[in-house]
Structure formats: C-alpha cells, structure tokens
Amino acid sequence: MEETAAAPRVTVKLPASLRPHAEGRQEARVEASSVGEALRRLAERHAALGTHLFDDAGRVRGHVNVFVGGRRVDDPASEALGEGDEVRLVPSIAGG
C-alpha cells in the first residue's frame, strides 16, 4: 500500500513480549491509514517483529489481538485509523 503524506500519524504500543523484536521499544510511531498498514510499517522496520505478528499468509496471528482505543479490531486490514490513534498489541501470555 502506498504511503502518503496525509496518512494519519499513530502510536503502536508494544507489550513486553514483543519488545525484544523491536529493539526494546515500548511504542513506535508510524504513519498509516489502517491498522494493517500500521503493522506492516512496523514489520518493515523490524523484520523479526513481522515474523511474530504475521503468519505465512500475511494474516495477523491468532494469538495477537489488536485494540484501538480500547476496542478490539476484528479485521486489521479494513480498520481505518485517525490522527493520534493508539494501536495496542496484546499477544497471549501464559506465565503463572
């Protein structure tokens, strides 16, 4: 997808389990029109993170949930983003 200067600037919040694959960052700022695009931008920057986010078919993995403004995103590709939105990644963890 082509990035344009008009694409909204959003913040992607990364949980502890994903940070090692994004140089330890707690969050990343990207310009993206949709949730899917935002995640692809992240994956372009951090290849290892992409492996953790997307399966071989390019879909967001089933153990990774995406929330925007506290609301769960069912279809990241079609979920539009607005300026200043906060995208939160919540992968499953199992420690007890």
Binding site: H52, R61, G62, H63, N65, P91, S92, I93, A94
Partner: peptide, 12 residues
C-alpha cells in the same frame, strides 16, 4: 480472544 496459540517458542 486468543483463537490460536502462538507458534511454539514465540512467547517465552
């Protein structure tokens, strides 16, 4: 919510 488990080893 977590419809699939992570790939083995993906989540320490």
């Amino acid at each position: 919510i977590f419809r699939e488990p992570p790939p083995p080893g993906a989540v320490p």
